[in-house]
Design a binder for these strands. Structure first.
Lengths: 364, 364
DNA sequence: CTGAAAGCGCTTACAG
DNA sequence: CTGAAAGCGCTTACAG
């Protein structure tokens, strides 16, 4: 690799000082440097293919133009990558780069990640969980402002962006109710993920609001086989058969469809099925295509990054957003402390939109 | 955020020069600095929680300890994340950090990515494709040694690590043959992905080697619904029904299972089914669990990163590995140029291991 | 054994 | 309008 051109090279070629080069190339030329020299400098920079040495700039400016991202399980889930994509897009648009470290949920690695990121002088920090969960960041987060995505500080000391799980679940359930379903079963996820309880709650709320008495959700799990087993049970067991099933997620819905097939039931004619997640690789391609709820992964990454960037721009040490960063004001769950603690900071709920496809029909 | 301690702070507290601090903390103390002073310095560093300013170190050493990673679609696929994980693990273990930029296959973004990474002074470069494809990197790759993962330079100027698709496909097909299947259908992916042809080739090779005449692979696609449609056709069409189906990937296999269910066929009793990819979220949980082939995503990331790191350590400007970096020597496809071109560099084939589960049984 | 000096590449007061 | 100087925090010859 050939040595990169430095500002000195440009200065020499243009016959000026490095000061002049810096001024012009950073847009402070006007009124300071003679127009002809400006042209000379720009030409020289072009010729040499000059680009400032980011490390030197960073050392001088005390800004790295890098945002540290700590994730807990980057590899596990397909759509979770969208969170990173949203964050990356927002960062790149603002001239920032992402330094991503995955901790694999290992506390040691997490501590080290904070250290490394701090030493790399990141300007801000984003912590992203791959599935919704509470997360208490170190009390004094190093490395500038910090924001949480798809996780939340139980004490709300750090701003967070999370999906409105309850709302999404309410929405799909209502969709079923509008189609005329009255006996709806729910196959829930395991309670090691907080999303399971939230989705159950949404289901119950929608049923109750419609004057229907909800069946107790069946605890199953998040995988295809769990959905299969639960569906086998509910669809063969004694008692009346439900006309629709709300699944914990799209994969469980695959299991339900497989079970329906094995039982000779046709979806949606004999049974309506809905999922959750809008899994890119699954939901649109199931036969029939699955009606489900989309998780705002990308939005979480984007919004969270915007808030970080905004705080960085403010020169703030805290991740507290001054004014809303994004254009569209997201739903805010007023997370006021029990005693109105002024240290609390907003936890923003992002909509989980209903995605209507072909797996729902009126009950027979 | 409180100001970080500098080496000057440590020097002052310990009553020595910054030189001494640097020497001791970098392990060059012995024989240079009096033992008592060494202790003093270490103590001071501890007290102040000193860690060297990475940016300053980088500027001075002309090494950033960062490896740039350019990906083309980080978000699309779940298991693809494993590639990143493997790369990250290898990098972190060697004290390197990853600067990841996703280009979304936009050539403009790609060009910009190289620029940005070069300006950030990355010590080396990894280019990772999310699905196997040819990829010609810029002729003079900037930013130190470069290696390709899950993609390959048609001219083999840059080392590459790719899955042995043909071998994997041969292996599953043989598995079916060993179970006694003689009439095996293949539902292939669309040919926009090179993996499709490779997997077809493996299928054909295995059949031919066993003295069986292979059916022509059916062109379908990579999604559930394509597998479903193709299965419907092959399983209802005129002519003899195959006793087993080789699918382009796991998702297509889901479609096949769905179709089998709709047709009243039981897998594996009435029909054996195998997939490809060993999709974490799908294959182990299908009912029955899917016999498939695992893609060495993690290994590709790991091995490729090791080669980059090795080349960096060599101080080499080219990504040409001197000696093999990893312990286990991977299968090497001798990609010698047609005329023995000495500029050619190895393209390494990583094994795609067969993963036996429950979706295969002897034909009835 | 120890510390003053130079230099990595840049930008920003400051003096002409 | 222009350039010499200082300084970001570090490490590495070099002179004592």
């Amino acid at each position: 690799m050939q040595r990169k051109a430095t500002s000195k090279d440009v200065a020499d070629l243009a016959g000026v000082s490095r000061t002049a080069v810096s001024l012009v190339l950073n847009g402070h030329g006007e009124g300071n440097i003679a127009p002809e020299k400006q042209a000379l400098i720009r030409a020289a920079a072009r010729t040499l293919n000059y680009a400032p040495h980011a490390v030197a700039v960073s050392l001088q400016s005390r800004r790295s133009s890098m945002i540290g991202v700590i994730t807990d399980q980057i590899a596990t889930s397909a759509h979770a990558g969208m969170l990173l994509r949203g964050a990356s897009d927002a960062a790149v648009a603002a001239g920032y780069l992402l330094l991503v470290i995955d901790t694999q949920r290992d506390p040691d690695q997490e501590v080290r990640a904070y250290d490394v990121l701090r030493n790399q002088q990141v300007d801000g920090l984003l912590f992203a969980a791959m599935s919704l969960r509470p997360y208490a960041p170190p009390s004094l987060v190093p490395g500038g402002p910090a924001v949480l995505a798809n996780c939340y500080d139980p004490d709300d000391r750090v701003p967070a962006f999370v999906p409105d799980e309850i709302g999404g679940s309410r929405a799909v359930t209502n969709h079923l109710i509008e189609f005329g379903h009255r006996d709806i079963a729910m196959i829930s996820g395991s309670h090691d993920a907080v999303a399971a309880e939230l989705r159950e709650q949404g289901f119950r709320e929608a049923m109750t609001a419609a004057g229907l008495s909800p069946r107790a959700p069946m605890l199953a799990g998040w995988e295809i086989d769990k959905g299969y087993a639960a569906a086998m049970q509910v669809l063969t067991g004694p008692g009346p058969l439900p006309t629709a099933i709300v699944c914990a997620n799209d994969r469980a819905a695959v299991g339900v469809m497989l079970a329906a097939g094995a039982l000779g039931l046709s979806v949606p004619r004999d049974l309506s099925v809905v999922g959750y997640d809008d899994d890119d690789n699954v939901a649109p391609y199931l036969v029939p295509a699955l009606t489900t709820v989309r998780l705002p992964h990308r939005e979480m990454g984007e919004e969270a990054m915007r808030v970080v960037l905004h705080a960085v721009a403010e020169g703030g040490g805290s991740g507290r957003p001054g004014e809303p960063a994004g254009a569209e004001p997201a739903t805010v769950e007023s997370a006021a402390g029990p005693d109105g603690d002024p240290e609390r900071v907003p936890r923003t709920l992002l909509e989980c939109p209903l995605v209507v496809r072909d797996s729902v029909a009126p009950p027979r």
